[in-house]
Design a protein around this nucleic acid. Structure first.
Lengths: 261, 261
DNA sequence: TGTACATCAGTGAACGCGCGTTCACTGATGTAC
DNA sequence: TGTACATCAGTGAACGCGCGTTCACTGATGTAC
């Protein structure tokens, strides 16, 4: 039993650390709940303490300041969204590019609808007076990494510039340099630009839905928003040159001729 | 001079109304300035009063409440953006559909970059605890009206469903009903859907730029953002079947075949 | 087994600040007789 | 021309609230001898 005795302090320490982690988690959960009703700039350490039944000063044992709490929430949100996109995209057959694209888009939209306040925290108006520290950069990049990965595989499955409708102008090629340094040289400029456009369109669409901009434009009956989103996803995929499984990706049929009169 | 005498009271009243309007304008201007540093939820009547050198209670002579001030700011922002889009689009030759599209997009982006805080007020995260009254609906619709007008003219210049790559699935057609009731029956489903996608993509792109999401993706050298945006505008237009003046809009060449090996 | 000590999570009062909104009032201006 | 009155923009004090952060402290728990 000397074993037990020697371990005791660390067992206790471990237990303390466990409750500490648990309380920290509860603080973050409460903070997330407050995000819903008051928004990021209404986030209040005192309100959280009140809800958890502790004194306002006690919170400072777990969180250094309001800004630090905000940073943790932001990082957690990026990580949650990023891992949703990663796992859902990874679950699809690597060959099925359209399926992977749809999975990634669906993950983003699904997570956003399930966590509207955390979505707004990271993709809505930046919190005034708060500047995101470096710790948020890596988690923020996870979703775009997934999308860029798909882009890379689209390029890989295509013999050089296949759909080079028109190449990108030189000043745009320069503008794309940072993205290029992430994605590598294999992805043609056109595809890269089109990919970024789809990326912005995806988040634009999700934000429009969440922020009420689709009101009076896209129906709100059950199924309407799903149908609209699904069709958009399909069309973004088509713009990237990938079509749902069953259709050969490389062989895009030309525009259908006018209906026979 | 009986004329003058009879008019006098109304002349005075008119003067009073003029100064009243002027002070109201100054309150709105100060509010806009505060939006920049503190965001919508940090907007404070007391701070505005302080800046204008009046007592906080005096503001209530011009503005009924904080919420009413917010509503006025929102309406003013929608109107400013809407009229920018309207006038810039109207200045282009009606025949030049791609030019009109580019003008509308440019107006939106230009206004947003010049007025980032007002843009965030209307297209960013909704202000928590504030619900937009009916008075905001009409001004909010101005930009989309401009875009839908272009869509209508695209359809008019095309002999029925010309580019029906694939029609829209029935559940999506239903989802598009509200938009359809605005745009009228002449615009084919495909074009309508594609138009809404371009609309969401436009605002998604502007929001990404303004909210810092393009950092590390699209360059920040002088000219980079302009080039990226211009190329995106061109490609959205191409997706709508319109190409810059000089190219015949109706005659879209089918996807170029693979390069001869 | 018993006592003195260390650790440490949590308390509660306080500082100094800000806010929206109300309300009785002042004081300048113009009006009516 | 002179006086009593009405109008009305603006004041300043007050109400009741909330906030982030600090700091001296309590009190439970475990440790060492």
């Amino acid at each position: 039993m000397s074993q037990t005795e020697r371990d005791r302090p660390s067992v206790l320490r471990a237990a303390r650390e466990r409750t500490r982690a648990e309380i920290t988690r509860e603080i973050l959960d409460a903070a997330r709940r407050h995000l819903a009703t008051d928004g990021a700039s209404g986030l209040s350490l005192r309100a959280i303490a009140r809800e958890l039944g502790m004194s306002s000063s006690a919170v400072y044992g777990y969180v250094a300041s309001r800004d630090e709490l905000l940073t943790r929430l932001i990082v957690a949100a990026y990580d949650a969204l990023g891992s949703a996109a990663e796992t859902q995209e990874a679950a699809v057959d690597r060959e099925d590019l359209a399926g992977r694209w749809a999975a990634a888009c669906g993950a983003v939209q699904g997570w956003a609808l399930a966590n509207p306040n955390e979505y707004a925290l990271i993709y809505g108006t930046p919190v005034p007076g708060y500047t995101a520290p470096a710790a948020t950069i890596a988690p923020a990049a996870r979703v775009s990494s997934v999308l860029l990965g798909i882009l890379r595989d689209i390029a890989a499955g295509r013999p050089a510039p296949a759909t080079a409708e028109d190449d990108v102008p030189p000043d745009d090629r320069e503008a794309l340099a940072p993205a290029r340094s992430i994605v590598g040289p294999e992805v043609p400029d056109t595809l890269l630009h089109q990919g970024l456009m789809a990326w912005a369109a995806l988040f634009g669409t999700v934000s429009f839905e969440l922020f009420g901009q689709l009101h009076g434009i896209v129906g709100e009956q059950p199924g309407d928003r799903e149908a609209y989103f699904a069709e958009s996803v399909r069309r973004w995929a088509a713009q990237l040159g990938i079509t749902p499984a069953g259709t050969a990706p490389a062989a895009r049929k030309p525009a259908r001729p006018l209906e026979p009169a």
